[in-house]
Simulated scan of single mutants.
Amino acid sequence: MARVDQAVFLAAGRGVRLGPRGREIPKGFLEVGGTSLIERAVGLLNAAGIRDVTIVTGHLHAHYDALARRLPGVRTVHNPDFAESGSARSLAVGLAATEGPLLLLEADAIWEKAALTAVLRKTYPSLLLASGPTGGGDEVWIWAQSGTPRPVLDFMSKRCATRRGPPFGELVGITRIGAAFRAALLATEDRFFTSDPKGDYEDWLIAAATRVPLPLRRIDDLVWAEIDDEAMYARARATVWPRLAARE
């Protein structure tokens, strides 16, 4: 099984729901515990042996460009269509700029080290990480179907009533993409963007998973948070960070 030694961050979002703060800085530059989300994540990746980091930029990209000049092993690639497209287009830009297995991450989240440890284990060439319910708001729910020896991705949605039965877990935004699943993404790219030119990357993962199963791993008590608006930012600082710092 190929080792994962590179990571791609999706960081092109406009941060509209953050209001004035989102017009000043990209979400990846929000600080929790005295460090920006992106710098903390890159540091954890480096500590795990991943020193090749690509950041797909869009909104206020100069912040990430400056970071790349300062941090060894970090580079940026720009999604020129970020304002008119969804996160799937940023994933396409990231795939075009890299080769081989990779770790795919969202730049607007904070998570404990255990998240990386779980995904980087060599048990599966591809793996999507889930958590138990967090109550963080704006959750993306994951539904599973049976797989051997681990459940595999069936569907994802922000609407919990989309599927019968309870969801498998909550999307964390860290996905290991091996060679076979990467090939499935590329094989479905044209059809996906023809049917959904403004689609999100989660929907592209679902489409690719119909060709190559994407195993799931759930950590019920994982400490993490995504930040999309001021309420989620306040929760990350006041509630999530103290729990995370206590563990690490």
Rank of each mutant, 00 (worst) to 15 (best):
A2G: 05
A7K: 03
V8C: 02
L10N: 07
A11V: 06
R14Q: 12
R14Y: 07
G15T: 10
R17C: 01
P20R: 10
R21F: 02
G22Q: 07
K27N: 04
F29K: 03
F29A: 04
V32D: 06
V32N: 07
G33M: 06
G33L: 06
I38Q: 11
R40N: 08
G43L: 09
A47G: 04
R51K: 13
T54M: 14
L60T: 09
H63M: 10
H63V: 04
Y64M: 10
Y64H: 11
A66M: 09
L71Q: 10
P72E: 15
R75A: 12
T76R: 04
V77P: 01
H78Q: 14
A83F: 06
S87M: 06
S87Y: 03
G94K: 00
G94A: 03
G94M: 09
E99K: 04
L103D: 07
L103P: 03
L105N: 09
L105K: 05
A107S: 15
D108V: 11
A109C: 14
I110A: 09
W111Y: 15
K113Q: 15
T117C: 08
A118L: 05
V119K: 01
K122Q: 15
K122R: 14
Y124H: 13
S126W: 13
A130S: 09
P133M: 10
P133D: 13
D138S: 14
V140F: 07
A144V: 00
Q145N: 06
T148S: 13
K158S: 11
R159T: 10
G165D: 03
G165Q: 02
P166Y: 02
G169L: 06
V172N: 09
G173N: 02
T175N: 10
R176K: 15
A179L: 11
A180E: 15
A184Q: 01
E189P: 00
F193W: 06
S195M: 05
D196V: 12
D196T: 07
P197G: 01
K198F: 04
K198Q: 15
Y201Q: 12
W204C: 00
A208H: 08
A208E: 08
A208V: 11
V212G: 02
R217F: 14
I219C: 04
D220T: 04
L222D: 11
W224L: 01
A225D: 08
E230A: 14
A238I: 08
T239R: 15
P242L: 08
R243N: 08
A245S: 12
A246W: 04
